[in-house]
Amino acid sequence: MSAEAVENEQKSGIVTTVPTGGLVTGNHGPLPNLIAASGSAAAFAWEEFIFGKIRNANTRAAYEHAIRKFLNHCESLGRQLTSISPADIGLYLDALPYAPATKKLHLSALRHVFDSLVSRHVLMLNPAASVRGERLTVVEGKTPEISIQQARQLLESICDSNIIGLRDHAIVCVMIYTAARVGAVAKLQRRDFYDLGGQHCLRFQEKGGKSREIPVRHDLQQIIHNYLSKAGLEFADKLTPLFRTTVRRTRQLTPNGMTPGDMARMVKRKLRVAGLPSQLSPHSFRVTTITDLLSQGVPLEDVQNLAGHADPRTTRLYDRRNRKVTRNIVERISV
Rank of each mutant, 00 (worst) to 15 (best):
R316C: 03
N126K: 10
S229I: 01
E75V: 03
L91V: 02
R217H: 09
A170I: 06
D88H: 15
A66D: 15
H106T: 12
E47T: 12
E156Q: 13
S334H: 14
A61Y: 11
K142F: 03
L220A: 06
V330P: 02
L239V: 08
S38R: 08
L107W: 11
Q205T: 08
Q10G: 11
G308E: 04
Y227C: 08
L188I: 09
G232I: 08
L91N: 12
S38L: 08
I164D: 02
G78F: 03
S116G: 13
S161F: 04
D192R: 04
A66K: 11
L166W: 00
Q153S: 12
R135K: 15
R135C: 00
L117Y: 10
P260V: 02
L228S: 05
L239A: 13
A179I: 09
T326E: 15
Q199D: 03
A57R: 14
L81N: 12
N56F: 00
P19V: 07
I171C: 05
P19Y: 02
Y194C: 06
E47R: 09
S295Q: 12
R244L: 04
T25D: 04
Y92P: 00
I223R: 05
A179N: 07
K210T: 01
K210R: 12
A184R: 01
V18C: 00
R323C: 01
D94F: 08
R217Q: 11
R286L: 06
D262E: 00
K207N: 04
A62G: 13
C201V: 14
I67E: 08
V325C: 00
T246F: 15
D302C: 03
V267I: 15
K324F: 10
P144W: 06
E134V: 11
V172W: 00
N328W: 01
G21D: 09
G13Q: 06
Q199R: 13
A95E: 11
A36R: 01
I35F: 05
P19T: 12
G308H: 01
F243Q: 06
I158Y: 02
L93E: 03
E206N: 09
I146C: 04
F193A: 07
Q80V: 03
L154R: 09
G208L: 05
D195H: 07
T314N: 06
S2F: 06
L81C: 11
I54Q: 10
V303C: 07
I54P: 08
L306H: 04
V172G: 01
N305F: 05
L154D: 05
A62T: 06
R132C: 00
R248S: 14
E301T: 11
L280Y: 12
L253Q: 14
S229M: 04
V330Y: 14
V185N: 02
K53I: 08
F235C: 04
P144H: 10
R181H: 06
G165E: 09
L300G: 02
K238V: 13
R152V: 06
C74H: 04
P30Y: 03
Y177Q: 09
L233S: 05
V139I: 03
H225N: 12
F285E: 00
